[in-house]
Each structure stands twice: as C-alpha cells, then as structure tokens.
C-alpha cells in the first residue's frame, strides 16, 4: 500500500483545522479507506477530544520518537470504525520534541499500512508548521471568509508553494454563512477563491451542530441530517477522486423561503 499524506493547515488558529481533520478522517474511513490521523500540535492536543478518544491514549508521538513504544502500539483505534486510527500528540511537551526528519520517517512507515495519513498542523508558521508539512505531499488549506483568516491562508499558500515536497494544495472554506453573503455583509466563496487563486475542495456551512458534536466527541459526519456533515462527506469523496458538485448553500431555508418554493412548485415555475 502507498498511502497519501495530506497535511491540514491554516496559519490562523480557530478556523477549524482539527474539526476538518476529524471529519474528513471519519468520512474517509466510512468510505472504506484505512485512515490514520496524526496530531502534531504538541502541547495543545485536541484531535483526541473531537474524536472522543481522550481516555484511550496510552502512548503519544513523542513516545514513538523517543522509542518508548513501537509505532503500532501508539495508534489508537476509533470507537466505531476500525479503519480509523489516531496518533496523538503529547500534551506535556513542546514543538521541539519531534523533528522534521522524525515526522517524515513516521509518515513513511504509516504509508505502508494506510490509504490516508492526515496530519493535523498547529496554528502559526513556526517550527510546528514546518514539522507537520515535512512528511506530506498534499495539503488542504482551511480558511473562513474573514479577512484575517484569508490573509493568513495566503501566507501559508506562499510557504507551501516554496516547498518541493508539496505537490498540490487545495482550499477548504469553512464556516460559510449564506445569509451574510446574500446581504453582502460577508465575502462570498467566489471572492475568496479569486483573491487566493487556489483550487477549492470544499465549502462547509456554519453549523451550530459542530459545537454539540465536539461536546459529544462525535464527528458531525456521523450525523446524517447535518448540512456541514454532508459537506465534509463530499470533501472526503473529492479527495478520493469522485466528481461531487458543491452543495447549494444559497437555498432559502427560512419558512418564507420554503413557502415560496412550495407555491412556485405548484405553479410549475420551479427552476
């Protein structure tokens, strides 16, 4: 097996890197792929929480690097899906505990047994970012339609372009709010894509369900009704290579909108 190593990065913190990682990982595993997620945010680990695996972690990536355990021993299996594994970050150490070379080596080893290796990158552009990117050949840049996030994404794209190992990068636009876009209060998807001139791999709508899913330790892709979950599932399918159209978020979901649609449907005017 020759797995694909994808780093999920953003520059700015709080735009949803870890959420994206947990959901894409889970969705890929649901598609029957063997997936391992590596949390490289040493000292500020959170991926375990989003997956609800915080109580199962025995060994971390630092233990692997410092040879206190074998790599396979440190992989924590997901509760539901045996195709999904997590290599957790150490909470008590800092970014210097693992080097670029060591991460590259871990990725190389995992490539043999997994289809996808998703690397969760810490915020910032310092050593933590350099480490996370070291072993990857693809990148997903997460951003939101806010100025600061877009600016940081532009910086990250610049850094990724300078890296020879990164063969391709794609943009994932998170926390999109169709209502605000409609009223011209927020940059639209097209605006962000045009400004960053990057290829889009996903548009995730803002969804309060993310908060509850994080609280439960259950990625939102497991919720069949959630729109954000559906969007994440589509991202996973696009990663695999399927041609999936982007969700139409512009659709009016308010009561008035639904009534309008109902009546225009009766009149046979529905587009």
């Amino acid at each position: 097996m020759d797995g694909r190593v994808i780093v999920i990065t953003s520059g700015k913190g709080g735009v949803g890197k870890t959420t994206t990682n947990a959901n894409i990982g889970t969705a890929l595993a649901k598609e029957g792929k063997k997936v391992v997620m590596i949390d490289t945010d040493l000292g500020l680990r959170n991926l375990d929480l989003l997956l609800g695996l915080e109580n199962r972690i025995v060994y971390t990536i630092v233990d692997v690097v410092e040879e206190r355990c074998k790599l396979k021993q440190a992989l924590v299996k997901d509760k539901k899906n045996p195709n999904l594994c997590l290599l957790a970050a150490a909470q008590t150490r800092d970014k210097t505990a693992v080097t670029e070379e060591q991460l590259k080596d871990i990725c190389e080893q995992l490539k043999k047994d997994f289809d996808f290796i998703l690397v969760d990158c810490p915020a910032g552009i310092e050593q933590g970012f350099q480490n996370a990117v070291a072993g990857a050949s693809e990148a997903i840049v997460v951003t939101t339609p806010e100025m600061s996030a877009v600016r940081d994404a532009d910086r990250i794209i610049g850094l990724l372009e300078a890296k020879e190992e990164i063969k391709s990068y794609k943009l994932l636009l998170n926390r999109v709010r169709p209502n605000l876009i409609k009223s011209n209060d927020m940059m639209s998807v097209d605006d962000v894509v045009e400004i960053l001139s990057a290829e889009l791999i996903g548009i995730i709508p803002e969804d309060t369900g993310i908060i509850t899913s994080t609280n439960k330790g259950e990625p939102i892709v497991n919720d069949e009704k959630s729109l954000a979950g559906k969007a994440y599932k589509n991202v996973a399918r696009r990663i695999i290579g399927d041609d999936v159209p982007f969700l139409n978020l512009e659709e009016d979901t308010s009561f008035v909108g639904k009534m309008k649609k109902f009546f225009s449907g009766l009149m046979g005017k529905e587009k």
């Binding site: 100025m147 877009v150 600016r151 532009d154 910086r155 610049g158 876009i181 011209n184 209060d185 927020m186 940059m187 639209s188 605006d191 400004i195």
Partner: peptide, 19 residues
C-alpha cells in the same frame, strides 16, 4: 459600500503588500 466589498478591497491591498 457594503461590508463585503470593503473587505475584498482591503484584503487585496494588504495581500499585495504581503506578497
């Protein structure tokens, strides 16, 4: 001028300087 256009224009200028 709406907030969206202001944001786009400000971003373009800032990114130009950054790049």
């Amino acid at each position: 001028a709406n907030a969206k256009d202001i944001a786009c224009n400000r971003l373009r200028v800032v990114l130009m300087q950054d790049r």
